Amino acid sequence: LDITFHVDGKNIHVHGASEEVVRIIEELIKNNARAEEIKETLERLLR
């Protein structure tokens, strides 16, 4: 699975993920999660 995301100002662009995963990533970023935390969360979800 190949998910890429980047933050452009306040806009979060996520590619290669389901809508549910996109929402989770957006929440994590809004809550100022570190990249490592986001990665760990995604790995748990995608197991």
Rank of each mutant, 00 (worst) to 15 (best):
L1R: 12
L1F: 13
L1W: 12
L1S: 09
L1Q: 11
L1Y: 14
L1H: 10
D2E: 10
D2T: 12
D2Y: 11
D2W: 14
D2N: 11
I3W: 15
I3S: 02
I3T: 04
I3A: 05
I3V: 12
I3H: 12
I3D: 02
I3E: 02
T4V: 11
T4Q: 07
F5A: 03
F5E: 02
F5H: 03
F5P: 02
H6K: 10
H6N: 13
H6P: 09
H6S: 10
H6Q: 11
H6L: 13
H6R: 09
V7T: 03
D8L: 04
D8W: 05
D8A: 06
D8P: 01
D8I: 01
D8G: 08
G9Q: 02
G9E: 03
G9R: 01
K10A: 13
K10L: 15
K10V: 15
K10T: 14
K10E: 15
K10R: 09
N11A: 14
N11G: 05
N11Y: 15
N11K: 12
N11T: 14
I12E: 01
I12K: 00
I12P: 00
V14T: 02
V14N: 00
V14Q: 01
V14F: 06
V14S: 02
H15Q: 09
H15K: 11
H15G: 04
H15F: 14
H15P: 04
G16P: 01
G16A: 06
G16H: 07
G16V: 04
G16M: 05
G16R: 06
A17C: 04
A17L: 08
A17P: 03
S18P: 09
E19Y: 15
E19P: 13
E19R: 12
E19M: 14
E19K: 12
E19Q: 11
E19F: 14
E19H: 11
E20W: 15
E20K: 08
E20G: 07
E20F: 12
E20Q: 10
E20R: 07
E20P: 05
V21L: 14
V21Y: 05
V21A: 07
V21Q: 05
V22K: 06
V22Q: 05
V22C: 02
V22G: 03
V22S: 03
R23N: 07
R23G: 05
R23H: 08
R23P: 01
I24T: 09
I24H: 08
I24S: 04
I24G: 02
I24N: 04
I24E: 06
I24L: 09
I25G: 00
I25D: 00
I25H: 00
I25Y: 02
E26C: 08
E27D: 13
E27F: 15
E27Q: 12
E27T: 11
E27V: 09
E27C: 06
E27A: 13
L28W: 04
L28G: 01
L28N: 01
L28C: 02
I29W: 04
I29Y: 03
I29G: 00
I29V: 06
K30D: 05
K30M: 11
K30E: 06
K30C: 06
K30Q: 10
K30R: 13
N31R: 12
N31F: 11
N31S: 11
N31E: 07
N31W: 08
N31K: 11
N32K: 11
N32M: 10
N32Q: 11
N32R: 10
A33M: 08
A33H: 08
A33R: 09
A33W: 09
A33V: 10
R34D: 10
R34G: 12
R34T: 12
R34A: 11
A35N: 05
A35H: 11
A35F: 15
A35R: 05
A35K: 05
A35W: 15
A35E: 07
A35Q: 05
E36H: 12
E36Q: 11
E36M: 09
E36V: 08
E36N: 08
E36F: 13
E37T: 10
E37F: 13
I38K: 00
I38W: 05
I38E: 01
I38P: 00
I38Y: 03
I38M: 03
I38R: 00
K39R: 14
K39G: 08
K39L: 15
K39Q: 14
E40D: 11
E40N: 11
T41W: 12
T41K: 08
T41A: 13
T41F: 09
T41M: 12
T41G: 03
L42R: 00
L42D: 00
L42G: 00
L42H: 00
L42I: 12
L42A: 04
L42T: 01
L42W: 03
L42S: 00
E43A: 15
E43P: 01
E43C: 13
E43Q: 15
E43K: 14
R44K: 07
R44Q: 08
R44T: 08
R44S: 07
R44V: 08
L45A: 03
L45N: 01
L45G: 00
L45S: 01
L45R: 01
L46I: 07
L46Q: 04
L46R: 06
L46Y: 08
R47L: 14
R47F: 14
R47S: 13
